[in-house]
Amino acid sequence: MVEGTGAERTAAFDAGERAAWAGRSTAYAASFGRLCAHTVPELLAACGPLAGRRLLDVGTGTGAVAARAREHGAQVSAVDADPGMARAAARAVPEARTAVAALPRLPFAPDAFDAVVANFVLNHVGRPRAALAELVRVARPGGRIAFTLWPVPAAPGQALLGRAVEAAGVRRPADLPTLDPAEDFPRTEQGVRALLTEAGLDAAQCRTLAWEHRTGPAEWWSGPAAGVATIGRVVASRPAAEQAEIHRHFLKLSDPFTAPDGALLLPHTALLARAIVPPRSGGPDRTGPDAVRAAGQVPGGASR
């Protein structure tokens, strides 16, 4: 565990998250991308009618949310902290205005959007409350905020890879940052509703989505094998012999989830949060930038 002050731990967590996704847009799309895309229809439905509405997709990844929002007629802007992800989204959804930017500071003026969404993003930021406050800042009064979040405890399918790591006797690397406990909150329906209410939002709701994700052993293993996400950083930190041992346990533990045709049917759950931005009462800081740089114009080493 990374030691230090709260600010130092938060900075280390954010830096670790950037490292977990940097240069891995293709590997993500080939492994966990379809899983994360499953919640997109419900996420967008939480925003109400989208035709002609200004929608911001925060943490767009390879552009699954942005693409579906465009199909519904929304005027889409999309940002991601990783330049490779932003470029992939720009290629997938050329009609969207795509930029490199990271929470908790986005390059938009207050009240710029009718809806702001974030699909599995608040799991990956060091200051979740500040991140939510930024989503609220850029949404207009009466606008919709919607996001998804992985719950704790995780569903059996989501926990499979972590169980394989534990079964192989591999411990989380000591230098792999964890979220500062002071910044954390319960990853439950009640905990998320409290987070929304604490942010001053109206009509706060949170419900659980449940589904079986159909994949294959090779596809599911390809994510951690390529170093994608935190589980990938754990696997990639080990020598080849230990990685092979993790893989062996992964195949063994996959048996209960294996269909007759060899596919994996992995039970997953996600929390879907939605709320409405109330009228402004005092006026927010309106000095934020209102321009977005196109992803193709942002240097690969840009600060995110």
Rank of each mutant, 00 (worst) to 15 (best):
A139Y: 01
P186N: 10
E71F: 00
R172T: 11
K252R: 12
L251P: 13
R233E: 14
A226V: 13
A240P: 09
L35S: 00
T98E: 06
A30K: 07
V136G: 06
T39C: 12
G6V: 03
A130L: 01
P267T: 04
A244P: 14
R171N: 04
V136K: 03
T258H: 02
A182K: 03
P153D: 07
I276K: 08
W150E: 11
I276D: 06
R34Y: 01
F13L: 03
V93F: 07
A19K: 13
A11D: 09
S77W: 06
A273P: 00
G23K: 07
P41L: 04
A225S: 11
D285Q: 12
M85S: 11
W220K: 07
H38Q: 05
L271S: 04
A81W: 01
L103K: 08
V138H: 02
A12V: 04
A236C: 06
A7V: 07
E71S: 15
G216S: 14
A218R: 09
A74K: 15
L44Y: 03
R127C: 06
A194W: 01
D82Q: 05
V40G: 14
E212F: 01
L209G: 08
G6S: 08
P239H: 04
E17Y: 03
T287F: 02
S254Q: 10
W220H: 08
V138E: 10
F257A: 05
E198K: 07
A88R: 07
L272G: 01
A225G: 11
L176G: 08
A30C: 06
G59T: 11
P256I: 05
P181F: 12
S222E: 10
P256T: 04
A15V: 11
P41H: 13
A174Q: 02
T208N: 12
T5Y: 06
A88G: 03
L44R: 15
P104M: 01
G4P: 14
F113V: 14
H247T: 15
R171G: 13
G63K: 11
V277I: 04
G262V: 08
L201G: 00
A51N: 03
F185H: 11
A218Y: 09
A275S: 08
W221L: 15
E71G: 15
L264I: 05
P128L: 02
L272S: 02
